[in-house]
């Protein structure tokens, strides 16, 4: 059984026909072609599929698309409307990216953190991003990039 859903993604309005029980991740990737958001575990453990719902990070692989109607959805493609978001620039510049598969989830989660807490300490960053798995970097440079982005915030969040 499919239903029409009206979704607001990255400030754009979309009408999609989605199966009942379709997850937001699959609608974003398969119906809207927003493939930046990734699936790695499919059960809400790794954070690769993180998107923002009204500014709050959620695991889109276990979040029903139907739950998102009437809410503001932000994906990695929607960060940084005037060029890259400071978090994205810092991740690229400071070695926080290796294979990059976890990166969209991390930058989205980190952008939400900075929105909520513009100058987080190391412990706060570690706690806020503990739900995102990275298998490559060992996390050092991810923490460093979020700290640097906080220091360079230009209101482009």
């Amino acid at each position: 059984m499919s239903h029409p859903l009206r979704l607001t993604v990255n400030d754009g309005e979309y009408l999609v026909i989605a199966a009942a029980g379709a997850y937001l991740l699959d609608v974003l990737r398969d119906d809207l072609g927003l493939q930046g958001t990734k699936e790695a575990c499919a059960e809400g453990e790794c954070g690769s599929c993180t998107v923002l719902i009204d500014g709050e990070p959620v695991d889109s692989c276990i979040y029903f698309a139907a739950q998102a109607t009437g809410k503001r959805i932000t994906t990695v493609e929607g960060l940084g409307r005037n060029g890259a978001h400071p978090v994205q620039r810092a991740f690229a510049a400071l070695g926080a990216v290796q294979c990059g598969f976890c990166t969209p989830g991390f930058v989205v989660a980190a952008a939400a953190l900075l929105q909520r807490s513009p100058n987080p300490g190391v412990d706060e960053i570690r706690e806020a991003l503990a739900g995102n798995l990275c298998r490559c970097t060992g996390y050092n440079n991810i923490v460093a990039a979020v700290l640097a982005a906080a220091g360079s915030q230009d209101g482009d969040a």
């Binding site: 930046g36 960060l79 890259a84 994205q88 510049a93 990216v97």
Partner: peptide, 18 residues
């Protein structure tokens, strides 16, 4: 910086799954 960094942070990098 790495040459593939920009594409990876913006979600434009194409992986096998994409």
């Amino acid at each position: 910086g790495r040459l593939d960094g920009g594409a990876k942070v913006t979600g434009r990098y194409e992986y096998g799954v994409d």
